[in-house]
């Protein structure tokens, strides 16, 4: 009798579980994991960071830090555009001058796009932006063999926000030092 009762109860539990899960199936899937926290306020929406006015005394010339702090790695682009903007040209000129001064340095230019486009188109757009920067540096005397390019499309935003200011930050090309400097 005992075992019959247990069995019976078990079977009931199974039926109940099945009914429950059918109901779960039938209902709309839940929104899922908690939404990510709201993005922090956008960093300074200045489209083009101007190079620091005076070289920092604590930075050793010719290092990656020197390039990042005293020249600047990133230039920004207009929506769906890959032309180097007038306000970005001085920074690229400074990048080229720095690279001419340190001829062993190898760079990789990483093109980026904002999230308001589809994935593959944005990969192609990021490639165009990286190439525009490459052409600019080459036109200022940097050997093409020192420069590689890649596109991250919309995969690597630097600003997680969803405002126009954030999208502007994410339409950029970064000149990354990949060899020849510490």
């Amino acid at each position: 009798m005992q075992s019959f009762n247990t069995k019976h109860a078990l079977r009931l539990a199974l039926v109940a579980a099945a009914a429950l899960s059918v109901t779960a199936c039938a209902s709309r899937p839940k929104p899922g994991p908690a939404p990510e926290p709201a993005p922090p306020p956008a960093v300074a929406p200045t489209p083009t960071p101007t190079p620091a006015p005076a070289p920092s005394a604590t930075v050793t010339p010719g290092t990656i830090q020197d390039f990042v702090v005293n020249v600047g790695e990133r230039v920004f682009f207009d929506l769906d555009s890959y032309s180097v903007r007038a306000d970005a040209a001085p920074l690229l000129d400074a990048q080229a001058a720095w690279l001419v001064r340190y001829p062993n340095v190898q760079v990789r230019i990483e093109g980026n796009a904002d999230e308001r486009g589809t994935r593959e188109y944005n990969l192609a757009l990021g490639s165009r932006r990286a190439n525009s920067v490459r052409e600019h540096l080459v036109s200022r005397g940097v050997a093409p063999s020192r420069i590689s390019t890649v596109s991250f499309g919309k995969e690597r935003p630097i600003d997680p926000g969803t405002t126009e200011e954030a999208f502007q930050q994410n339409r950029n090309a970064r000149t990354a030092i990949v060899g020849g400097a510490q």
Partner: peptide, 25 residues
Amino acid sequence: GMVFAPRFSPDGARVAFSVERNGNS
């Protein structure tokens, strides 16, 4: 350059994709 957007042909014998060269895909 970059390679992306791969798709099989319906018979599975070929793959179409994009190749980027000097910024042109």
